[in-house]
Every structure is written in structure tokens, then in C-alpha cells.
Computed example of a mutant assay.
Amino acid sequence: MSTTATEIVLPGRVEPAGLLITRRELPAPAAGQALVRVEASGVSFAEQQMRRGKYYDQPPFPFVPGYDLVGTVTTVGADVDPALVGTRVAALTKIGGWASHAVLDAADLVPVPAALDAAEAETFVVNGITAWQMLFRTAKVRAGQTILVLGANGGVGSTLVQLARANGIHVIGTASARHADAVRALGATWVDYRGEVARQVRALAPGGVDAVFDHVGGPGIADSFALLAPHGTLVSYGTAATKNDEGDSRLPVLKLFARLLLWNALPNKRNAHFFNLWAGKRNHAGFRARIAADLGQVFALAVRGDLRAQVAARIPLTEAARAMELAESRTVVGKVVVVA
């Protein structure tokens, strides 16, 4: 059995309007695979960088973007439990999510609770896994500690704030003034990122913060490290400050790696990490088990009401260009979701 899929193709380094809407025949799922009718996929910073050709390990053009998805299993291949058909699932894909259908390895699918609709659940997939692992696996933050979240109004940032607050962690969050009320509503103490962030944070946490989560990179990463308390942890997970830089897209990342390694080599009692969601073997059972366990924890908190889905907008798949433009406008709180 096969099906025709509508896909959004990134043909090269183009403006959002240059995205292509295509159709192709998908094969029936092979052994160990499932065909998923995609209901929602997100617009993250990764896709924004991919269209510029600046995401660190993106594939050659052309390809279908879409870092994660939520959908319903319609058909399964051999060696897959037939009971999976009809189940709503989530998956990390890195690419391929901006489509009406996708053939995926069944082992990569995580059940989605019925209490969450597709767009709500989608906001918790890559954002939730990233936030959970950075907070609890990398920085190992505990109740009663204080953290600084840069971009607390964004997809990962808003999830980080909520996860931390649900676990008794104090949060200082940066954002523009237009998002101040939204950041406060999430439970964080707002700091204006257009002001002197270091001064504002030191006034709130004179002894330093226990962890900083920094997606910005660039020269400001030094301030993030300097704001740490003794034995604190800096978790860097992006280089947004260099997104428009010309030249080799790998260079800013490699410079960041070098700086983090240098700081870790110094006797300063503070730690610095670059978070890579894909560290380890993607098809390894241990990697898949961690993804399923961590996303399961996030979904459980959402069902209990400890996490609120931050859906900035729901935009039809065929209007992915508009979704990309909105996500890049920096005017939204949460995540823009394309829905099929």
C-alpha cells in the first residue's frame, strides 16, 4: 500500500516565500516501520537556520524540513504490533516533519496522551525533551536553586521556565518588554534583554545563579558564564547571535565549543556544556529509551496541568511560508505550529 503525501520542500537558501509545495508517492511501511498521518509539526530555530544553509549538520538541499511531529498511525509494516494503528504518536525527525504523511521507524514513536490535542502535544516534543534533558540530565538543577533562562518567551525557553517552576526551581527569564507579562505569567522573574542583563541578574542573585541556559552564543556567552555561582553550570544550546553571519556556518559553533572547553579546563569550580540532543547513536536502544522516558515525563506534567502548551499560532501546512515568517518575526510567545 502507498499514499500520496503533500510535502514542503526547502530547495536551497531561500526566503520563506521560496518554500515549495510538492506531492509524492510514499511507499508502504517496511518491516519495523509505520506510516503516520501527520497532524502537526513545529517551526523551530533549526528550520530557520536550515533555510539559510547554516544549521550545523543539515543535509544537502533539497529536503523536507520539520524537526518533530505529532500524528496518527495509519498502517504498519511487518514486525510492528498492529494495535499501533489508530494511535496518536510523537516523533523526533530532525527533517521530514513538514508533510501530510511520513514513514518512520516504529521504535521512534512515543504515544501521546488523549488529553492533549496534536498542536499542544507538538509544542512539547523537541522543546520538552530539550528542556527536560538540559535541566535535569545536564545541569542537574534541584528544587530551591535559581536559574537564568535566556529567551524565556521562546519555544524551549517557555518550556524550561515551566518545567523549572513545576519542580520548585526559581527562574529569572530574559525577554523583550513586549513579552514581560507573558514571562511573569509562566512564573519567572522578567529581565529586559535589551538592558544590561548582567547587572539586572546580579541585583536579583548577588551570589550568582546555579545554571544559565543560553541559546544566543556569540560574545554574550562570557556574561552567561560569569553569572554562575560556584559549582554552577552553563548550558549552551545554540548560536542565535551569529545566525546572519556570512561564511562557514560551522565556525561559530566550533569557536563556541573551544571556549566551553577552555572554561572547563580552568580551576574555576564552574561547568560549561554544549547540549546536543542527538549525542549518541540515534538508532541505539538507549537513546530511544531516554527520548521516550523524558517525553513521557513532560507529557505527564502537561496532562496534570503543570505545563501549559505555548501554541503561538496554528497555520496550515500549505502556508508554511507564512508560518516561517511569523516564527522569525520574534513577536510571538511559544511555538508556531503547522497543521495538516
Rank of each mutant, 00 (worst) to 15 (best):
V212W: 01
V212H: 01
V212C: 00
V212F: 04
F213V: 11
D214I: 06
D214M: 07
H215E: 11
H215Q: 14
V216W: 02
G217W: 01
G218P: 14
G218H: 04
P219N: 11
P219R: 14
G220I: 03
G220L: 04
G220A: 09
I221T: 04
I221L: 13
A222R: 13
A222S: 15
A222P: 01
A222E: 15
S224I: 06
S224A: 09
F225D: 05
F225N: 05
F225A: 14
F225V: 08
F225K: 01
F225E: 03
A226M: 09
A226C: 03
L227A: 09
L227R: 02
L228V: 12
A229H: 02
P230S: 10
H231K: 06
G232Q: 01
G232N: 00
G232E: 01
G232D: 04
G232P: 15
T233D: 07
T233V: 15
L234S: 03
L234D: 04
V235Q: 07
S236V: 15
S236W: 00
G238W: 11
T239Q: 14
A241T: 07
A241W: 06
A241I: 08
T242G: 05
T242W: 00
T242V: 00
K243L: 15
K243G: 00
K243P: 02
N244Q: 11
N244R: 06
N244I: 15
N244C: 00
N244H: 12
D245I: 08
D245A: 09
D245M: 01
D245Y: 06
E246R: 10
E246I: 14
G247M: 05
G247D: 04
G247Y: 03
D248L: 14
S249L: 11
R250T: 07
R250Y: 06
L251M: 08
L254N: 11
L254Q: 09
K255C: 09
K255R: 13
L256V: 06
L256W: 04
F257T: 14
F257R: 08
F257S: 13
A258P: 01
A258S: 13
R259D: 15
R259P: 13
L260A: 14
L260K: 12
L260G: 08
L260M: 07
L261M: 08
L262E: 15
W263A: 13
W263F: 10
W263T: 03
W263N: 09
W263P: 07
A265V: 13
A265H: 02
L266D: 03
L266Q: 10
P267N: 05
P267L: 10
P267E: 13
N268P: 05
N268S: 08
K269I: 11
R270K: 08
R270F: 01
N271Y: 12
N271T: 12
A272D: 04
A272S: 09
A272R: 03
H273N: 13
H273D: 09
H273I: 02
F274V: 06
F275H: 11
F275C: 12
N276T: 10
N276P: 04
N276K: 03
L277C: 02
W278S: 15
W278D: 09
W278C: 09
A279Q: 15
A279D: 13
G280P: 11
G280H: 04
G280S: 00
